[in-house]
Amino acid sequence: MTQRPTLALTMGDPVGIGPEITVRTLLENTEALSARGVVVGDPVTVRRALAVCGLDAEVRVLNSWDLPDAREGVVDCLDIAVLGETELPWGTVDRRAGQAAVRAIEVATRAALDRHVAGIVTGPINKEAIWAAGSEHLGHTEMLGALTGAKDQSTMFVVRGKKIFFATRHLSLREALNRVSVPQQTESIDAALTALRVFGHDHPRLAVAAINPHGGENGAFGDEEIVHLEPAVRAARDRGVNVVGPVPADSVFHQLLADDRYDGVLSQYHDQGHIAAKTFDFNGTISVTVGLPILRTSVDHGTAFDIAGQGVADPETMRSAFRHGAEFAPFADRIRAAYPAG
């Protein structure tokens, strides 16, 4: 039997839904798990999550990555020793919760860099809480970049095997449009093609989404396609790569997700790609950070403080992130080679 890869799971904010969806992922439908999961966090948080979910399991506390054999009905937890036995109120912004979330990310990332684990799977964090704990990062992606020395990390959505990339992300729509240029499009195309190759597409097919309605209608509805997108696509094709576009955004995601014309689409701004993926399969859409020297998959939803601690959170996105972590684990060496640590 082929040995299963080991993945480190961070629960995100310990008073959000992350702990619940983490324990459900590891304990429900265990026969389908294609990787071994080790939780990185405080054991008190794992025990509380088990209790609110009504799950009966042993929490085995670990203090190193010298792992014992996996056992059915046991959740292994690498203790980060932040909260001790303190039980924080569910669903509230708390500096101590932010501190625990940040520490878990740091420990899991170090484990991946040191090859103790094949990759990390991250639960949702609360930005206010990590900022209250002293973090200066906007979120996971920026934090992981700093921890690994990566300078050009970006997001790749995965939905039913297809990939969506983003030329811009956390910007206003106006600012995103201001960033559009031939060099920016060329860099984004190259980054998307590299990621597709790293994650198993040896001969990638990429489509570039248009910005304006109907792709601009030859300049009638905007000229970004003519001035910036078309030259970048043409230059890429001249290098012999399989890139098409700009394709109107009301068609390109259907062609990706339903018609199987492409392996990936380069979305021009945050919501253009997010809306398409999450409408098609909200719970099945997960995030992979590309550009890091480690594998990182993640849920793409928040902490849901309003339902935290009730045991009702849907774990499907965390399960999908875990499954994709297992699926992508064989690419760990490719990831290191393509995106060396800084």
Results as ranks from 00 to 15, higher is better:
Ile335His: 02
Ser172Tyr: 01
Gly215Val: 08
Leu177Ala: 15
Pro124Cys: 06
Pro204Gly: 03
His214Cys: 08
Val75Met: 09
Lys278Pro: 10
Trp131Gly: 11
Pro248Asp: 09
Thr30Val: 06
Ser172His: 01
Leu138Pro: 13
Glu224Gly: 09
Thr303Gln: 00
Arg197Val: 06
Val159Ser: 02
Ala70Thr: 11
Gly222Arg: 12
Gln184Trp: 14
Pro340His: 05
Ala249Arg: 03
Pro89His: 12
Glu217Asn: 13
Val247Ile: 15
Ala235Ile: 09
Val227Ala: 14
Ile164His: 00
Leu50Val: 03
Ser188His: 03
Val233Gly: 02
Leu78Asp: 05
Lys127Trp: 12
Gly161Asp: 07
Arg24Phe: 05
Gly41Lys: 01
Gln99Cys: 08
Glu58His: 09
Thr30Ile: 01
Met156Pro: 02
Asn63His: 11
Glu142Gln: 15
Ala235Arg: 13
Val39Asn: 01
Pro213Glu: 11
Ala32Glu: 14
Lys127Gly: 09
Ala191Leu: 08
Pro246Ile: 08
Val233Ala: 01
Ile125Lys: 00
Lys162Glu: 05
Phe328Thr: 04
Leu196Gly: 02
Asn218Arg: 15
Ala337Gly: 13
Asp314Ser: 07
Tyr262Ser: 03
Gly123Lys: 10
Gly18Gln: 05
Ala146Cys: 05
Arg169His: 14
Asp13Lys: 00
Phe221Trp: 14
Ala313Lys: 01
Cys53Pro: 02
His137Thr: 09
Leu50Asp: 01
Asn212Pro: 10
Glu72Gly: 08
Ile335Pro: 00
Asp263Ile: 04
Thr86Leu: 15
Ser181Ala: 15
Gly134Asp: 10
Met1Asn: 00
Ala132Glu: 12
Gln310Glu: 10
Leu173Cys: 06
Arg96Glu: 14
Glu87Ala: 14
Ala338Gly: 13
Thr30Met: 02
Thr109Gln: 04
Asn218Gly: 13
Gly302Lys: 06
Gly311His: 03
Asp56Gly: 03
His137Asp: 12
His270Tyr: 10
Asp114Lys: 14
Gly240Asp: 12
Ile275Glu: 14
Gly309His: 02
Arg110Ala: 15
Ile211Val: 15
Gly200Trp: 05
Arg115Met: 04
His270Gly: 09
Thr30Pro: 01
Leu7His: 02
His140Gln: 12
Met1Gln: 00
Thr155Phe: 15
Thr317Gly: 14
Arg115Ser: 10
Gly145Thr: 07
Val15Ser: 01
His116Glu: 13
Ala195Gln: 02
Phe221Lys: 09
Asp13Leu: 03
Ile226Phe: 10
Glu225Leu: 11
Pro213Lys: 08
Cys77Arg: 04
Leu26Cys: 07
His214Pro: 07
Ser188Asp: 07
Ala129Thr: 07
His324Ala: 12
Ala341His: 09
His254Ala: 14
Leu7Trp: 01
Thr30Gly: 00
Glu316Phe: 10
Gly139Leu: 11
Asp260His: 12
Ser287Ala: 15
